[in-house]
Amino acid sequence: MNEQIIYRVLGSDEWAEALSHGEYLGAPHDVADGFIHFSTRDTLAATLALHYAGRNHLKLLHVPVEPIAAHLKWEPARGGTLFPHLYARLSVQDVFRVDDVRLDENDVHVLPEDLR
């Protein structure tokens, strides 16, 4: 895959914990699966709707593929769509940008303008 940036949604509290430790180990479902789930720009809205419906105070991590490519696998999920899975811990230094993701008045997540 040629995605240059991949995305991870997580709670503000999870990101604060990652910052305090210098790395993100993943949510409980990531740990159980053995990898950290990421989304592409094309799958981000569906990921939010499916896995984070109604959740507010979320963070969106923008992670360049290049620094983590050695531990990244593109694997099929939802109907055969390929998703990036990180088989390593995510260093906070590998995160390029962090945005807040809030709910609008209809409880729909609002992505940063450049990702809409």
Rank of each mutant, 00 (worst) to 15 (best):
Y24E: 06
L82F: 14
A18W: 07
Q93E: 13
D33N: 11
V31T: 14
V101Q: 04
L86P: 08
G26R: 01
A77P: 01
V92C: 13
W74R: 04
H62F: 09
R41S: 10
H21N: 14
E75D: 10
L72T: 05
F96S: 07
T40C: 10
D107L: 04
A46K: 03
A27H: 03
V63Q: 10
L60C: 10
H37Q: 04
W15Y: 15
E23T: 08
D94P: 00
R116F: 07
Y87S: 13
L44K: 12
L50G: 10
N56T: 08
P84E: 04
P112K: 05
V101F: 05
G80L: 02
H21S: 15
A32Y: 12
F83G: 03
A46P: 00
E105V: 04
H85E: 01
P84M: 02
S20W: 11
H21V: 12
G26A: 04
E75F: 02
K59A: 09
H85G: 03
G11M: 03
I6V: 15
H109E: 06
A45W: 07
V108A: 05
L10F: 14
L90Y: 08
D94R: 02
V101I: 15
T81V: 14
I6M: 14
L48K: 04
R89T: 15
S91W: 10
L61G: 14
V108H: 06
A18F: 07
G11A: 11
H21P: 03
R41Q: 10
H57N: 14
G79R: 13
Q4C: 01
V92A: 00
R102V: 01
P67C: 06
A77Y: 11
Y52M: 07
D42W: 00
K73P: 01
G11F: 06
A69P: 00
S39T: 09
H37F: 13
V101Y: 08
T47H: 13
I5S: 00
R97K: 12
D114L: 11
I68K: 04
I5N: 11
H37L: 03
N2Y: 00
E66T: 09
I6C: 12
V65A: 12
A70V: 13
G79K: 07
F38W: 11
L44G: 05
N2D: 05
S91Y: 08
F35C: 14
A16Q: 12
F35S: 11
P84Q: 02
V95E: 02
L103T: 07
D107G: 00
P67D: 03
A46L: 06
A77S: 10
L61A: 15
L48V: 01
D42N: 13
H37E: 02
A88W: 05
I36H: 05
H37D: 07
H62I: 03
R8I: 09
A69C: 01
S39I: 03
L44W: 12
H57R: 15
A45T: 15
L10R: 06
R97M: 03
F96G: 00
H109W: 08
A77C: 02
G79A: 06
A46R: 02
D104W: 05
F96V: 00
Y24P: 00
E3D: 15
